[in-house]
Amino acid sequence: MKRTMMMLAASISEVFEKMFFLYLEMTEERHNGPFLKASISFSGSESGVLDMYFSESLLTSMAQNMLSLEAGKIGKDEREDCAREAANMVCGNFLAAMEPARRYDMTIPRCIEVDTMQEEDAQADGRRMDYSSGGTNWALAAILSAGFRGS
């Protein structure tokens, strides 16, 4: 599982640096929310779900950088679109790195607003990674469903 999570972390870094020009730091701190949660399911030789919880301020920065817009021009649609696209890229990139020769089908990512993290996700030690960035309110948590191991 450690190798799997390291590859997921590498995928998160690559997506955030290349597409959103953001450098996130892993943290032990657990954020309480509220969040926008983006979920994407995948199936192939193994099945699973990747859930990503974003703080609003992080999504605003992502949309600002990706779309070159001022913060005041970014609304719910832009934030949700960035959350879905980030989950899609992180998941696709992660699966391609884990098992390049195997085919996985991914669903269209779904987004919901949540006040707090679901209990199951909040306690997902070993399958969960938290990120922040010094001096900002950025928060991101990525949780890989139980059972996915990769080969």
């Binding site: 696709g92 390049p100 020769a101 996985y104």
Partner: peptide, 9 residues
């Protein structure tokens, strides 16, 4: 232009 990078795809 896609996230799906496996060889079969």
């Amino acid at each position: 232009v896609t996230t799906e990078g496996n060889e079969e795809r």
